[in-house]
Design a protein around this nucleic acid. Structure first.
Lengths: 210, 210
DNA sequence: ACCTGAACACCGTTCAAGT
DNA sequence: ACCTGAACACCGTTCAAGT
């Protein structure tokens, strides 16, 4: 919705919103500073009054999208169900912005804020993982889901398109999320199913299995 | 190693080799058609005689790198050990070319050739996975390792740099690979440890757990 | 067959100038 | 305070021309 005649000033929020619209409609490669300005009906340099540069804009965009995911909180139904909710919500939110996942996965801490990073580690500690395993588990889950989002970016505008053997995007991500959960349980809570300390924590700094 | 005076013709292999050198040294963002030509001591348009366009060059580059990984073959020591070897080899090969993983993860079939795609699915079928689970498992393993490679791209030139709590890149990838293996075993071979058909195969096309 | 040189349509961004 | 306009240093790529 570009406005042909502007009465009042631009705002930073409008710039970010225009950027989100462009990524949603054309993918991250369609996000150019010139396109954002055109979308807002101003000259290419006008948006620079509200942001530092393109990296800054992408940071703001990522913050907005990540904030729209459900937070990772340890619910009454256990860490498995809580983690599943978080990962599926993250996948759904980011899948709407093709290319953003592949961009974030290369950023420090995958584009999450330090607070959300701490929350993620705390989540696994509260679930009974050792401090080391909590960090490794959080990184593992986050890496997988961002990888999956990146793979899906190509088909973002046709998520229901069947692929190999009629499998669709949600089959892949659901299989992956369940595998992540089972893998974490097997590695960090090998005997029972709740609260056991992981067998990895002690030898982790020397490397696993070798 | 740019050559200042050229006696003989360029070759396609030289162009690909120069591109690989550039990605290795400057990352994928350092790979420009003009830089490749400069590296070879020719004019910007000279390389276009040997390749179609930049996408074509990237395809050739990816083929070369992927061919340098150990192939995925079911060894005597079981699918777990075979998969571990393959994933670690892929990680090591691609980690040398920062940004290439994040590029490939967005390509159809993650940049692998159709033959390697079939080999991967066959691998899991031979290991006792149902046809559907074999596809899902192969996609899951590939997605994770490419995600991990993308995350590591940023620190490609200092892989031994300690991160949170002294954990290094190899701790993360080894934890992830073990989790992937345990997750696949738990989901697809829930009871014993060899050859059982997965419990997911029948309901997979209707979605898991729901 | 192999390569050059000029040119085009894009980028992000700087900088001075307008209101 | 907010925005314009011209310009710069990059891209990938086309196209005609040289040897």
């Amino acid at each position: 919705m570009p406005r042909s005649s502007r009465s009042r000033s631009l705002t930073r929020e409008e710039v970010v919103a225009a950027a989100l619209r462009l990524i949603h409609e054309r993918g991250l490669s369609g996000l150019t500073m010139r396109a954002v300005s055109a979308e807002l009906g101003v000259t290419p340099m006008a948006t620079y009054y509200y942001i530092e540069d393109k990296d800054d804009l992408l940071r703001l965009v990522a913050e907005e999208v990540i904030a729209s995911c459900v937070p990772l909180r340890l619910g009454e139904d256990g860490w498995e169900a809580s983690l599943r909710r978080y990962l599926m919500s993250t996948w759904q939110s980011l899948a709407r912005y093709p290319g953003l996942g592949a961009y974030l996965i290369e950023q420090p801490m995958l584009g999450v804020t330090p607070e959300r990073m701490r929350d993620g580690i705390r989540f696994f500690e509260d679930a009974g993982f050792s401090p080391t395993n909590a960090r490794l588990a959080w990184s593992f889950a986050l890496t997988y889901i961002h990888g999956r989002i990146s793979v899906d970016a190509r088909l973002a505008h046709q998520p229901e398109a069947p692929r190999l053997d009629g499998l669709r995007a949600h089959h892949y991500v659901e299989f992956g999320v369940e595998s992540v959960i089972h893998g974490l349980r097997a590695i960090c809570q090998p005997e029972d199913g709740a609260g056991a300390r992981g067998s990895w924590s002690e030898e982790a700094s020397a490397g696993p299995r070798r």
